[in-house]
Design a protein around this nucleic acid. Structure first.
Ligand SMILES: [Mn+2]
Ligand SMILES: [Mn+2]
Ligand SMILES: [Mn+2]
Ligand SMILES: [Mn+2]
Lengths: 218, 218
DNA sequence: ATATTTTTTTAGACTAGTCTAAACTTTTAT
DNA sequence: ATAAAAGTTTAGACTAGTCTAAAAAAATAT
């Protein structure tokens, strides 16, 4: 059984490993965990002993099959709890992350399976991020940044890349939500900002940065 | 903010203080927490410094107003979560305690208030134990052990004193549940066991011990 | 190719919580 | 009243996790 801390490290290493085959560096983990490199080295040794990661001194770590599976279960719990908070307790999508960060460490298979069922086996959390199933399988759909879409092509908002509360609050304010139909009306040459039409009736300008953080499907 | 461990100690001290004005002894706490007296002494000093308990060396501790309030909030969370697990996730009443023991330590006022509302502001948990409100107020109803009731008087099962999974499973098996109407048909002189009628249609014999652990109202 | 800078690891210290063993205080028995 | 027993506290050690400072290795610049 993994400790609270071990689970958090493992999740960080998993996220840093995603979509990349090379080793995750000590400094990257320290950065993501807001901790010091020396602490990371200590933890790396522990996780390596438990065969959750492979470790080569001075060259970083690679997550193992077993480690990935454990990390996916933590992510599964995190996203199911976030879904619960929004769907059942009427949290807004910017309020759920910190609480889910605690709830994801509750140890009970029965609980998580029953929660999954209660929620109707959702496949994505309130931010559009996929929820791994009980076997760790993730349903992936190709999504592209809104910034990369051509003008006047219809698309649907599917997820946010950066889920910081302030960005999420901003999105709610301008009327962007997961599932919203959007078209780009005009790309502003000068700064890369976009004028978009949401829901067929709301025109707004969003920055290049914002458009980069919104993922859509055509 | 209290740690996980501090909360557990405080809850134990609160429970040992209930319905009694004299000090709680180190050994009693150690017993309840399944730990050693030396560890208790260490923790006692910490809680005392935080003014959650009063401590007189060699003579045990007394919980303070502030300590009681903190303990009640942990108990509130514990019982709300147990209610959630049974009402919403279809757990049985013997399955919820250990999970609630973890969930009670999640730190979020918003979460607990929303959960309370989601559950319809329940006043008792699945074992019939009262749920403190957000101000720590407990609604108390006078309940007596079924063992102390006179023969042929109608009563309703309100709560269980000992909530161990095996006792709860046994109760379910014989058809006893919170809210069940019961009458004592006969008290067996020999061993104090009772023949009772549940729901007006199920006759069973229960031990004196069992009858002592079932609390009822007339 | 060598020197400098950057990154990583090690060494040693600190906190929270736990334990055993020893010392001390209170209670109980004679 | 004194001795024995029981309960409590202290002392010192251990684990998990963290940190700073120093040492070591790798990457980069000259
Ligand atoms: Mn999140
Ligand atoms: Mn976490
Ligand atoms: Mn319980
Ligand atoms: Mn607990």
């Amino acid at each position: 059984m993994l400790s609270f801390t071990e689970e958090n490290y493992l999740k960080a290493i998993y996220r840093l490993s995603e979509g990349g085959t090379k080793s995750v560096l000590t400094s990257e983990i320290a950065e993501m965990m807001s901790t010091k490199a020396a602490s990371v080295t200590d933890m790396i040794k522990k996780l390596s002993l438990k065969n959750l990661i492979g470790y080569e001194k001075y060259y970083g770590v690679k997550i193992t099959k077993q480690g990935k599976s454990e990390a996916l279960m933590v992510i599964r719990k995190h996203r199911l709890w976030e879904t619960f908070l929004v769907e059942k307790l009427q949290f807004t999508w910017d309020e759920v992350h910190d609480v889910a960060e605690q709830l994801e460490h509750i140890q009970s298979n029965l609980l998580i399976e029953k929660l999954d069922e209660f929620l109707g086996f959702p496949t994505a959390d309130p931010h559009g991020h996929p929820i791994p199933d009980k076997n760790g399988k993730i349903q992936t759909v190709r999504q592209i940044p809104l910034a990369d879409l051509v003008t006047s092509k219809k698309c649907v908002i599917r997820s946010v890349k950066d889920g910081s509360p302030s960005f999420l609050q901003y999105l709610s304010k301008i009327g962007v939500y997961i599932g919203a139909p959007v078209v780009i009306l005009e790309k502003i040459e000068f700064d890369g900002s976009l004028e978009i039409l949401i829901d067929g009736n709301k025109k707004v300008f969003i920055s290049r940065d914002a458009a980069q953080n919104l993922l859509v499907t055509e």
